[in-house]
């Protein structure tokens, strides 16, 4: 299954990057969301995937049985998902704000910080 996830992650990264490069803020945000999903998948697969029991200690036992899923990447991804969500919210409001202020969602038309110089 890791092979499949590797292909999937590549697919999602490519799609996300293509969307982010489209020059439109709305599509940029869609791409960003996809990209963060892909990143989580990469971490998950790098921690090895196995059809094992979840990382839980059974009631009455001191430690989980041998061969449970690796808990470390899970903990990483769990927070990464929430952080990613926070980042997504911020990007969304920023996009809204940019559109509001500049009246366009085309990124190449946003030149307030670096106005076009009158050269040549």
């Amino acid at each position: 299954m890791e092979t499949i996830v590797a292909v999937l992650a590549g697919l999602l990264v490519a799609g996300g990057a293509y969307l982010m490069l489209s020059g439109n803020l709305v599509r940029y945000i869609l791409g960003l969301t996809i990209l963060s999903n892909a990143a989580n998948l990469v971490i998950f697969a790098a921690g090895r995937m196995a059809k094992a029991a979840p990382a839980l200690t059974a009631y009455g036992a001191d430690a989980p049985a041998a061969g449970v899923a690796n808990p470390v990447p899970q903990a990483l991804i769990l927070t990464a998902i929430v952080i990613g969500f926070g980042l997504f919210c911020f990007a969304l409001t920023l996009a809204y704000r940019a559109f509001y202020a500049m009246g366009t969602a085309r990124m190449d038309a946003m030149r307030i910080a670096e106005p076009r110089e009158d050269r040549g």
Binding site: A6, A9, G10, L11, L12, V13, A14, G15, A17, Y18, L21, S22, G23, N24, L25, V26, R27, L30, A38, V42, A95, Y96, F99, A105
Partner: peptide, 24 residues
């Protein structure tokens, strides 16, 4: 926000994205 729009296929961007995706 305005509609997402589709636009034409951008070959250059597609290549960058594909190289990145394959790399991952």
């Amino acid at each position: 926000l305005p509609r997402a729009g589709t636009g034409a296929l951008r070959i250059g961007d597609a290549i960058i994205a594909a190289i990145l995706g394959l790399g991952v």
